[in-house]
Design a binder for these strands. Sequence first.
DNA 1: GAGCGTCATGTTTACGTAAACATGACTGCC
DNA 2: GGCAGTCATGTTTACGTAAACATGACGCTC
Lengths: 353, 353
Amino acid sequence: MITIEPPRLRAASDVPGGRRKQRVSMADVARLAGVSSQTVSRVANGAAGVVDTTREHVLAAMSELGYRPNSAARSLRYGRFNTIGVILFGLSSIGNSRTVEAIATHAAAEGYAITLIPVGAATQDNVMGAFTRMGELAVDGVVLIIEVHLLDASAVAIPPGVHVVVVDSDAGDRYPVVDTDQADGARQAVRHLLALGHRTVWHVAGPAESFAAERRAGAWRRVLEEAGRPVPAPERGDWSADSGYHAGLRLAADPDCTAIFAANDQMALGVLRALHERGRRVPADVSVVGFDDIADAGSYLPPLTTVHQDFAEVGRRCVDALLRQIHDEPTGAGTDLVATRLVIRGSTGPVGS
Amino acid sequence: MITIEPPRLRAASDVPGGRRKQRVSMADVARLAGVSSQTVSRVANGAAGVVDTTREHVLAAMSELGYRPNSAARSLRYGRFNTIGVILFGLSSIGNSRTVEAIATHAAAEGYAITLIPVGAATQDNVMGAFTRMGELAVDGVVLIIEVHLLDASAVAIPPGVHVVVVDSDAGDRYPVVDTDQADGARQAVRHLLALGHRTVWHVAGPAESFAAERRAGAWRRVLEEAGRPVPAPERGDWSADSGYHAGLRLAADPDCTAIFAANDQMALGVLRALHERGRRVPADVSVVGFDDIADAGSYLPPLTTVHQDFAEVGRRCVDALLRQIHDEPTGAGTDLVATRLVIRGSTGPVGS
DNA sequence: GAGCGTCATGTTTACGTAAACATGACTGCC
DNA sequence: GGCAGTCATGTTTACGTAAACATGACGCTC
């Protein structure tokens, strides 16, 4: 069969192996199968109204040529990309990576791919830059995992008409927000320690810019105040085990300190190490509670009592909320809170046990 | 000015807030600015040959209408998506998420976005399905982070003409592979323990399907054999701290066991816990070495001696290799190894110290 | 001052897909 | 046996962009 090869603008570039880089289009398949490209389209989309023999010819031609639909053309045609963008500062935090994983998995189940847009540091410029890039990206909606207050200032830069869901933020009055119920988790942790008989609870807080850290610290403070307990000055870490270690060293020096609530598990790990080095037994001398319930927490020495966050559920609800917007089911602003629960392990106990 | 509104197929769907979801095209901008859409295109792409006043008019029209380029159309035109796909089993492993983060960051710096394609479980079907989906995705190349042997069987399913780089695999004879030098890392770990005077070294291996686990175990065995030491039966875990804990309990029962090399830090954490519970001191009675050097490892009790992996470098080289392929600089198959180094902390010491 | 080059801008076209509309063949009914 | 209806398939067109080509207005040179 003689095929007329139209002149191609791209370099024809035959790979040594003999593979051609040229994309196969519906027209190519149609030519080989001896049908129109519209029929190929019908077969590709499983539309009715194609006779079996024709369908088989087309399918045969497709697999012979290795046809794959061109999603750019498809997106252009439909005005939809079937893609969700995720803007975040980094995957290094365990919570972020698990949330992203859940988003990816759930989005895939709904036929959406996800595009990751990392933002270097939490500077205004970077965030603005990400929004700009995002605007040009082929996405139908965006999940913002920004976790810092900067969102306020840069909110104006969110291009109109872009669907947005925000994770872990106080933007609930302007955008739909999905988040873990940080405050309730912190309350459970602090009340647990008070119930064990501790006079008050020390706190190793996360970085001041973090909204989650602030809410955990706020809830800690409120529970103590409501119970009429003294509120010790909080130590501040940066989420890392190392920063928790240094905070722990300071707290270990205070003989009154018998109960510590760390704003995440990794800082709690550092606290445990500091207490151990200073000869303060956990939980006999000091009780420690973390936050997150990462997979390793049950293997700390001792196994860590901590607040379980359901990252997977957060990711799932993000995707659901976004898809609702994309499908034109108007979702108002407001905050959707995912419940937390306290997991009691070996790092907490009654005072002086 | 009278604007003729062409009939739209999509629902016009005015959002209550007054925002219109309709995308603004170059033609819209051109109409408002009183120029042709080609001139708008020139301005948008910073092409020369547009007089300043015209450019300003166009820019003004752009910002008035909130114009954003349509990347689907752009991709269709160029035959390029400026997107790299990443196929992986999950982000739950710390190594994976850090590698992905590095890929995303480095790709962004090169003007590429990344699309995440999660594969549920390591079943043949799932992998094949991912390849199929991938084929339909708007990506210029793919990084495969599959880390299991399944790749062999499904390799045939990689659509021809798709650029691929594989992480952590033995596919080096068919595709470019970027990987950490697992074997060398394991060698350093085992030799370190032998140099401390331990008669031999026990091993807590990763899952049998994992290629990285196999290479670490292989190197461990070879070093022992070369040194003429007995090779204890390896314990097997699934990378989790919990599985390391159970392996550790079994090893703790063996009074001869004085040195343990765990295939990752999290299993090492579990081993530390088991040894602690069984009253075996680390490193006085037993030395422990991990693998990965995750951020927390320095805060374990005691701080963990471990093999440092440079995940960021792996991600960077993946992107570089892929871009080289995309830009038609032929990159042969072969393995690009990223060096590891042993980080000595407090969990290892001389025998009976 | 005629002719040519330069440069800003407009017009045409193609990228791959799929909806909308068009065509033609065959079936079944009276 | 002719006509309407059904159904498989073909043709046209639009999606938004940008390369290639076309046009027309200047200015400069000899």
